[in-house]
Computed example of a mutant assay.
Amino acid sequence: MDEIAVIIVDDEKEAREGVALLLEKDKEINVKALCKNGLEAIKAVQEHQPELMFLDIQMPSINGFEVLSSLSEANLPEVIFITAFDQYSLKAFENHAVDYLLKPFTDDRFFKALEFAKKRIYANRKNKENSNLTGLLGDIKEKATNNSPQQIVPEGGSNNKIINNRLVIKADGKIYFVDLSQIIWVQAYDYYVKIHVKERFYLVRESMKKMEQFLPSEQFIRVHKSSIINLHHVVELEPYFNNEFVATMSNGGKIKTSRNYRDNLSGIL
């Protein structure tokens, strides 16, 4: 039986290492990565394609549920949530969690959850073998009747485009056409940007410089090295220290401007 690739995600070092230590007792488990935040988790899933993820819920910037929403269905592993807060249990199972471990948990409770996850993984492998065979036969038939190449929006920053006042984003295994009017603000996040719309965000591998270049300047202005705001969603500007401001956005978010980008604000001040 092939080993099960696992990643562990928790912003507490002791918690990550504690789970890893427990997993050492199971020879069928291969821990591929220990991640201290949501962005590391997303990268680890893309790199290692794990079949199981132990995932903390409350983490800074990107929480556990946001990690899952940023992954395509094809990349989704089985998930065991680990948290110190029991109010998330219903939402965890709405996100198709295998189990929900409430800290502190016993070793017996941990291995019970692990055993159930392994059974689901082995069942998924068997189902995938059958579906792969069916899919292969379907591909052969399709190629015999259709030789034209498929047209898609490739992943990658420079290929995100604006069409008919909509930003084209490939995420979650789908292509989204996001009206520019829906974009509240854009946030720099390591080698990615988070494009915030109402009640969610899209995590895209892109630079702030490129975003600033292709978003229309009459609507979007850069107010900080890490922030581009949509003027249509600015509710108020509150004076801050050193000629800076705090912008309140339509979703309630607070974004601090920078003196270095004050000239960009001159048109609305």
Rank of each mutant, 00 (worst) to 15 (best):
S227E: 08
K13T: 12
L52G: 05
F201A: 06
E17W: 02
E66A: 15
N146C: 02
I140F: 13
G173N: 07
M59G: 09
P149Q: 03
Q151D: 00
S181G: 04
S70N: 08
N63H: 07
R259H: 14
M211T: 08
A41R: 02
K225M: 01
G252D: 07
D86H: 11
G156D: 10
L269E: 13
V153G: 02
K170H: 12
P50F: 04
G173R: 09
F220P: 06
I268F: 01
P216R: 00
R205D: 05
I183P: 08
S266Y: 04
E12M: 09
L114S: 03
E206N: 12
L52D: 03
K36E: 11
S89L: 10
I229N: 04
I195W: 13
K174P: 13
G138V: 02
S148I: 15
V98I: 11
Q151R: 02
I7E: 03
L137T: 06
V168A: 06
I121K: 08
T106N: 08
L55A: 11
G64E: 15
N260S: 13
N95C: 11
Y122K: 09
D179C: 03
D11T: 02
P104S: 13
K13M: 08
E244A: 07
A92R: 11
L101C: 12
N159M: 10
K161W: 06
L269N: 02
K209T: 13
L55G: 11
E40W: 01
K174N: 13
D86V: 03
N243E: 07
G135C: 01
R200P: 00
R262N: 07
A41E: 09
D56M: 10
K13V: 12
K103F: 05
K118W: 04
Q182L: 13
G64Q: 03
K25R: 14
F111R: 02
L265M: 14
R222F: 01
